[in-house]
Design a protein around this nucleic acid. Sequence first.
RNA 1: GCCGGUAUGGCGGAAUUGGCAGACGCGCGCGACUCAAAAUCGUGAGGGAAACCGUGGGGGUUCAAGUCCCUCUACCGGCACCA
Length: 823
Amino acid sequence: MARTYDPAHIEPKWQQVWQEKGTHRTVEDANKPKFYALEQFPYPSGHLHMGHMRVYSIGDIIARLKRMNGYQVLHPMGWDAFGLPAENAAVKFGAQPAKWTYENIDFMKTQLNRLGVSIDWSREVATCSPDYYKFTQWLFLTFYEQGLAYRKRAFVNWCPECSTVLANEQVIDGLCWRCDSEVTKKDLEQWFFRITDYAERLLNDLDNLPGWPEKVRTMQKNWIGKSQGANVTFTIPELADEQVTVFTTRPDTLYGVSYMVLAPEHPLVPRLVAGKAQEQEVLAFVEEMKKESDITRTSTDVEKVGHFTGAYAKHPLTGEQVPIWVANYVLLDYGTGAVMGVPAHDERDFAFAKKYDLPIKVVINPTDENIMWEEVGITSAYTEDGTLINSGDFDGTPNRDAIRTIAEHLEKEGKGGLTTSYRLRDWLVSRQRYWGCPIPMTYCDTCGTVPVPRDQLPVLLPEDVIIDGKRNPLTSSEDFMNTTCPSCGGAARRETDTMDTFIDSSWYYLRFTDANNPDLPFSKEAADKWLQVDEYIGGIEHAILHLLYSRFFTKVLHDAGMVKFDEPFKSLLTQGMVLKDGAKMSKSKGNVVSPDDMIEKYGADTVRLFILFAAPPERDLDWTDTGVEGSYRFLNRVWRLIEANTALFGKKAATPKPNDDAAKDLYRTVHHTIKKVTEDIGERYTFNTAISTIMELVNKLYTYPNEADRSTFVFALETLIVLMAPITPHISEEMWQLVGKEGSVHEQTWPTYDPQALVLDEVEIVIQINGKVRDKLVVPNGLSKEELEQHVTANEKTQALIEGKTIRKVVAVPGKLVNIVVG
RNA sequence: GCCGGUAUGGCGGAAUUGGCAGACGCGCGCGACUCAAAAUCGUGAGGGAAACCGUGGGGGUUCAAGUCCCUCUACCGGCACCA
């Protein structure tokens, strides 16, 4: 009686066996090469969705292949467990954040195991566990000691909905990354990480990451936003020659300056307007601007608004009086917070000058032209290259050269020089929320800001707090707030902000290498052994946030001597979204496909197979019910093939003796399949084509003649089971047992192909006439160009095709084609 | 505006180094099995009667272009009054 394929029965069975035998434990074996396969760990929101299924299926197939290929593989999993949803659950239905989170983790862990993912759970981490966040605090202290964590008062991004501040990276088009509320500004004293110190390295080292998608590297480049130019220092005679510096990318236009603009928040503004007629008007404007977010203020739709301060600066080279303005479009925290206005050569400045009737002074002529600007007038900014005019000693210099020469001249005079600006700002890491890692700092009236010593970590999150979504919850715990100063022992106050959860996830990949170390975040030895992560898999949504922060962390820890590498992720695979009917799955659209339902109906192997087959990993994948049916059908097809032939198998591996044409062909196909699957899964990550090649093998096995050699047939079936093991682990294990093999299929050595076996005796050659396919011809393999040409031109079929025509040229490509050009 | 990516049958996609475009799968047609259906097995198809035409449009290089070069278009994404 034939057994039918029953995933509901075999999948839980093998999952239990693997767990009991510890099959997925990390094997530490110095004789083997290492491989660190990592998927971005999930936030424990409650349940895994199809996107999770996809990322973990991709990671698992890679990890399993490497294991069978003789690598020691680290394939761990954890939980990005701090975050606002746990607090929202507390506000909404009174849940305790910790309890809510750990219950979600339990459930999602079950889901992951049901997918058959080969995870070493002995290294599991949850960022909300004191065992983990103790070391997040430990590392915060490292940043502090390195001078990279500092506190400053600033206008920061504030999300009213989340009642907390946000980093620049968390403001997307002026909206909060999590809740899409409009972000406003707030003047607060907050902790920052000095990521701008690393801007240049974060930018340059992108070139050392060939394993990253171009797209992600470009996004990071854009975000860092390097801009080369010059600082130019003006003086203000009426303020006792106080200096004010502008940043410009066009120092070559310095002689064309007709005004200067400061950001409204620029510290000089109140002094410039003091006692002037403009004072009231300007200060009112400044107050108005402080309320607006940078995004609204500098949006392209918003009109440029400026006010004259009544004050003048002195031009550093000409000594001319330059009127000083304030305007909405100048930002305090980019460049120097001040710009020079050159209307003749900048479109924005031109529009501003026209609006406020400021002088326009031309200082660049198109090369080889002598335009009489005074006569013809100027109707738009001239932004092309050219030659300097009206520029003192620099007249006649090509403007490209003048960028450098003018900057160098300024430097000699002590009035500026070449410099670089970045768009990247320091990372604001404080959050006014409860469910996060407490910042290990205390404030003492006597000693000031005092870090909590490492031997007093962790600073535990208190439980006697009020979470109402309004105030900072930690301020509601008197016990937490009031502490003693670690330095003088006197009364002190604790920092009540927690850290941005992106700090937790900026180092978890390091913790996995030494997850149970009680004394250190990780040992240098373990980190240096396993890092870099050989393949990191996750969504494109972290292209800037998590991936930039993690790179920054790694560089800081490298500089602190804690690790030898300075980039964490050698290769990055950004998987596409899982769509249904061409749209993102969402509850509101009602197009959500539940992984649990699918696994229940078809089994995890079918889900994995479909996910990997339906699209290459980096593209979006459209979930189709008929497609899943097809994958299920294929597994049934394989099952029946094996089941019907179990009697042929012996305990020992089959030794193929291909001695007839069908067997020879099958033997060659098996080796071709091994090669293709090995390369597609192991190197190219095109799992879809690996699977299609396996399907072709199965199709061939179905048409294999009964009278052809059995040993080759069994060899093919055995190889098939092994090749499927990384993709569909449960059915492969079951079939391995079904045919009487010993041990686990997952402990088998990955087959290697014999290049000799791929060589054909005869090959089919395409015959082209003038580049068009006209016929095909079977010729012996291995003919040289000349032999092939001779062979084909002498052939009757070819003769017939070219009859009556003159051969002008013959191009022969061995093994492929012969193209005959006739006149 | 600057930067990056993508474009192939009815659909998902393949073609890795310039060498038979459309592998594999879905869907569809036909056949076998069946009283019938499902399941399964087999089989067929890019368009066109054909010459031929076909990889977003136009041009080019080449014996040969989905693949290389130029140019344009559409869509997706990042940055953006960034000085």
